[in-house]
Write a protein that binds this DNA or RNA. Structure first.
Lengths: 333, 333
DNA sequence: CGAATGTGTGCATAGCTATTCACTCGCCAG
DNA sequence: CTGGCGAGTGAATAGCTATGCACACATTCG
């Protein structure tokens, strides 16, 4: 029955209302010159037919779709959820839609970008840390504004927003020292994450500046299991650390659980622990984890500002500070 | 400089390659009749100009955009993250894009649906539990297939996928009884969630069928804080429960933490606790929470099948069973 | 009363691609 | 030699809306 049904067009409405197609268009355009009586007739006909203006022709002419593509690598980390939530709000506030794209790796991104360009997305936000300059160049050729989060690529149409991860690493070193740490450990995130690299470098630099020995190192992922593995590695050795900086909260939770369950050690009495991201869970009773709050809203606000930049000027980087939130995991009573 | 730049069109490429626009189109259409030499010329020109076929004209004609709108109410619950991840994979596998829409309430949904129709989305998936039949009717008038998750509305273009929440509630009652529970408590989710209502009804029915007294009740949200509040309410009374069924895991975590911190009670020795959703965190050391796994992949697979249904036939409901995953929180040693 | 201003409407068109139709070759078989 | 066929190509068109332009009519002012 509905084999080749098509949604009602403005022409259909015009016919039903006994006016021209232009009148229908004007009825739906705020501020257009149209008589109230005509508008009423049009609206009645539109309601009866279930007409909704088709946005595609406008996009076709203006090349502005009102759609922003957000690229993520996965959803397992609640930090991404916070970011998505904030972006969603910010985009909605501006009347923009969010096309969510999940890619396994930079390679996959290349392939999907062609499609995005085909949809004429207004911009691309990459929460995934782009690492291949190839992909970046590919993207800038399309003249689509791109904002990357915690990445360090550059290019004509590429802007970026980052936390000052290096400074946070230094601050972690200072805090752990102040709270009585003597043997330091770093629980690393994945090696291809620029944020991870900067946090580690900052931590190392902070320790050095304080005249402290370099940190032991383990881990290699942003997830719970990586943290758990790291704890086992670090505490299997004879020289156990007593102050840990973890690349993110999720890993820190893994660390804390393994220390408590498998080694009978607790934070902060046996080990000081600092995380990163300040997830909701960091405040939960079993953890009470000291962590760096990245102020997701500020990041997103900065990203939105960068998207407003008209032309594809040279790379613009914004750095938002991270706020240290201290909880029990670093406060010995 | 780039004041009114526009992306290269197939006509531009045709001019550059010295062929007709048709030839360019055919070069990009797999299986079209075109000479290899011509295709090569076209591809070279396209590469030089950075041409990507504009998808909008095709959409304009066919009214099929290859975009599915996914509506969610928020991201704070990791269960949504799992669902999103699964949908993302399923859609990508079919070459579809995901337009993510976040709405505060059903009302807001109405207003955004007009825009979705304007973009000619192929379908709408609502992870938000639609509760207003108005919204549902509004949607079905647009002849856009809709799949709702854990909702119970019906209409011409509305299909739904649910867990058998009622059966799970009954199973929770049986399990808690078997494990030695005598005084039962239910930690409720938000009242406007059909899933919450069904879980509670199933639990109540299960208790009754076993000849047990009805459960005490507290809570009213799917989040950690609601669970925490519920625990304080339930255990402030003189008649404390010793077996709790929580509407979801997040609330269960709040319950467990408050019991441990503020009442010195632990699961499973003092209180048996069952949750719902089987989040990753449910397996973590501080909780080891018995929970119902909703098999997100199965849900999503069912949803995708329902979307394939051509016409807007009468309401089709799929129910996926939930699998009980028992952990220490209900196993006394 | 004539002119000028303002209001409301319809006509025509741009924007880009996929596809249908018609056409031209080159080639083979009858 | 000619009819037919297949391959390859170009011209024309549909799909829908916003908008500039022209026009019709009402109103106001000198």
């Amino acid at each position: 029955m509905s084999g080749n049904w098509r949604p009602p067009s403005s022409t259909d409405v015009a016919r039903a209302a006994g006016v021209s197609q232009s009148a229908v268009s004007r009825a739906f355009t705020p501020g257009a010159r149209i008589a109230q009586a005509t508008r009423a007739k049009v609206m009645a006909a539109a309601e009866a037919l279930g007409y909704r203006p088709n946005l595609l022709p406008k996009i076709l002419q203006t090349n502005r779709s009102g759609i922003v593509a957000v690229v993520v690598g996965g959803f397992y980390n609640p930090y991404f959820a916070m970011t998505l939530e904030a972006f969603s709000k910010a985009l909605t506030a501006r009347g923009l839609q969010m096309l969510l794209v999940r890619v396994e790796s930079d390679r996959k991104l290349d392939s999907v970008v062609g499609q995005l360009a085909g949809y004429r997305v207004d911009a691309v936000v990459s929460a995934l840390a782009l690492t291949s300059q190839d992909a970046a160049d590919q993207l800038s050729k399309l003249r689509i504004p791109i904002v990357t989060l915690n990445s360090d690529l550059s290019g004509d149409w590429i802007r970026s927003v980052s936390s000052d991860n290096f400074a946070a690493g230094e601050a972690a070193a200072r805090l752990l020292r102040e709270r009585g740490g003597t043997r330091f450990g770093f629980v690393a995130g994945p090696g291809d994450s620029p944020a991870q690299v900067a946090r580690e470098a900052g931590f190392a630099h902070g320790l050095e500046k304080l005249g402290l020995p370099p940190a032991m190192r383990a881990g290699g992922g942003y997830d719970y299991a990586s943290g758990a593995r790291a704890a086992r590695d670090l505490f299997a050795s004879s020289e156990r650390p007593d102050a840990l900086f973890c690349a993110n909260d999720l890993a820190a939770f893994g660390v804390i659980d393994v220390l408590r369950e498998e080694f009978g050690l607790a934070a902060p009495d046996d080990v000081l622990v600092v995380g990163f991201d300040n997830l909701d869970m960091a405040a939960w009773a079993p953890y009470r984890l000291t962590s760096f709050d990245q102020d997701v809203d500020a990041h997103v606000a900065a990203a939105m500002e960068l998207l407003d930049l008209e032309a594809g000027a040279t790379c613009v980087a914004r750095v938002a500070p991270s706020r240290l939130v201290e909880r029990e995991s670093t406060q010995r009573s």
